[in-house]
């Protein structure tokens, strides 16, 4: 799909004119801002935040805006302030690094809600939204240990969302086989797709047959390596649907519809009953976190393992299994 931002913006403008007429009836329009630490054009972390923003626009008729900041803590506070002072009701800081700045600005704007992704904070109008990725990764770990000989995990940088996911994977694999070998490598950034590719290739050459990359924009390099290594290497698609890149290797999809989760939270704010504690999305929220198996690929997960995974998933959702650290 190719969509230039220009046509996209024109579309948004036309749409907002169309919806703004009935929306005039409301006392004030809901405005939502988004701060992301990089480009939303890449298939990765920033895109997830952007999709959430779009979801709020489409489903709640909000007026939206986003700003792609470089990863610079000094500029966060100003961006929050810019939005808050322009009457934005909800501002999503997409990443734990936005938390300190939001707390600071929140003191001056008590009527604005500051949502922070990948955070477990709750202080007044600053609310953390955490997608517990250790849960789906736990399931992947179980599948890896049952179907493979050795697993490989390629990470971007050593930050909580990624550490959390990998911890879940390791716990899941160990729950099946305590000695199941897992190797782990970080490429040290989120841009170098070639490094992600080579890291995955090297793991595969050292015997890994179940590889999951998790490096935001660079993730795609990992799937490419998996695809080039033949159908004996298995993987799971994470966050987005990467099956077109590695159609012969991907057993299933973990897709986080973070947008659904954010829309629900924003809806509660709009209705005047905002969350009273920090929000954690997990397997208990099937609308947000979907974990599905593929049937159209050359390899698929056998029925008995699927049943087992389903049982474990239910236990995680019920809070009976702890997946994280």
């Amino acid at each position: 799909m190719k969509l230039s931002r220009r046509t996209f913006l024109e579309g948004v403008a036309a749409l907002s004119i169309a919806v703004s007429v009935p929306a005039m009836a409301h006392a004030e329009d809901l405005k939502m801002g988004l701060l992301v630490p990089g480009s939303v054009s890449e298939e990765g972390w920033n895109r997830i935040g952007y999709n959430a923003l779009k979801g709020v626009e489409e489903q709640l008729g909000a007026k939206i805006s986003y700003v792609e900041l470089q990863q610079n803590p000094a500029s966060f506070e100003k961006a929050f302030r810019d939005y808050a002072s322009q009457g934005y009701k909800v501002i999503l800081g997409h990443g734990f690094e936005f938390q300190d700045a939001a707390l600071e600005v929140a003191l001056d704007y008590p009527d604005t809600y500051f949502l922070i992704s990948s955070s477990s904070i709750h202080e007044g109008n600053v609310i953390g939204l955490n997608t517990d990725t250790s849960q789906p990764f736990y399931l992947m770990g179980v599948i890896a240990a049952k179907m493979g000989r050795k697993a490989g995990l390629v990470g971007g940088m050593e930050i909580p969302p990624i550490q959390q996911a990998f911890a879940g994977f390791k716990n899941g694999a160990k729950s099946v086989n305590p000695d199941f070998p897992i190797s782990e490598a970080y490429i040290g950034n989120f841009t170098d797709t070639t490094a992600a590719k080579e890291a995955a290739l090297s793991m595969i050459s050292q015997g890994a047959d179940f590889v999951v990359p998790n490096a935001s924009g660079a993730t795609v390099g990992g799937y490419q390596a998996i695809s080039e290594s033949g159908p004996d290497v298995r993987s799971f698609s994470i966050f987005s649907d990467f099956t077109p890149v590695a159609p012969n290797n991907i057993l299933g999809l973990y897709v986080a519809d973070y947008a659904q989760g954010v829309v629900e939270v924003v809806r509660t704010i709009k209705d005047g009953s905002p969350p009273t504690e920090n929000v954690v999305f997990g397997l208990k929220d099937p609308k947000v976190m979907s974990f599905t198996f593929r049937d159209d690929g050359p390899v698929s997960v056998p029925e008995d393992i699927r049943a087992e995974v389903k049982a474990i998933s239910d236990k995680i959702a019920a809070g009976e299994i702890k997946t994280g650290e």
Binding site: S39, E43, T193, G217, A218, Q224, V245
Partner: peptide, 16 residues
């Protein structure tokens, strides 16, 4: 080569 012979995507700052 980075986008055509090694990885199949352009990513900002791909030269790293």
């Amino acid at each position: 080569f980075l986008t055509l012979g090694h990885s199949n995507q352009f990513v900002e700052g791909i030269t790293s």
